[in-house]
């Protein structure tokens, strides 16, 4: 018998870089908009901080990088709600982008797989 492999398609990766400590709020907003979860890395970033001059002290060098995988149909709504929650339109608050993903694999409950395959 062949091994069964189930993987997911039609997904996109939203990567959002914000100042350290502000990530949790954004993850909550993303989950409320339908995202299932987030992976968080710590990082350091430069850019706007140097160009703000004296005001740069208000921008934390240490960052959090949030990786959130969503379905392609969810991208826009999650993207907007993160942008609002993170106040990304304020200087120094962060940066966000979307990357298309080819496929992904994770635990999918067997009952869900059956139901989806029945539907065709």
């Amino acid at each position: 018998m062949k091994n069964r492999e189930v993987f997911l398609t039609d997904l996109a990766l939203i990567t959002c870089i914000v100042q350290r400590g502000l990530g949790d709020e954004i993850v909550i907003a993303a989950r409320e908009a339908g995202a299932l979860g987030a992976t968080i890395n710590y990082a350091r970033g430069t850019g706007i901080r140097e160009r703000l001059g004296f005001l740069g002290v208000a921008v934390e060098v240490e960052k959090e990088v949030l990786n959130i995988v969503v379905a392609t149909e969810q991208v826009d709504i999650v993207f907007s709600s993160i942008s609002l929650a993170g106040k990304l339109d304020t200087p120094g608050m962060g940066f966000m982008y979307v990357t298309p993903l080819e496929k992904a694999s994770t635990y999918i409950p067997p009952t869900v797989v059956e139901k989806l395959e029945e539907r065709g």
């Binding site: 400590g21 706007i48 140097e50 160009r51 703000l52 001059g53 005001l55 002290v57 208000a58 921008v59 106040k87 304020t90 200087p91 120094g92």
Partner: peptide
């Protein structure tokens, strides 16, 4: 050479407020 960013007063407020508040 990257030029300095010119901020509007509202932006300065938005930037500085959370910095001080936290």
């Amino acid at each position: 050479v990257h030029p300095k960013v010119d901020l509007r007063a509202a932006d300065v407020y938005n930037l500085v407020r959370p910095y001080i508040q936290v």
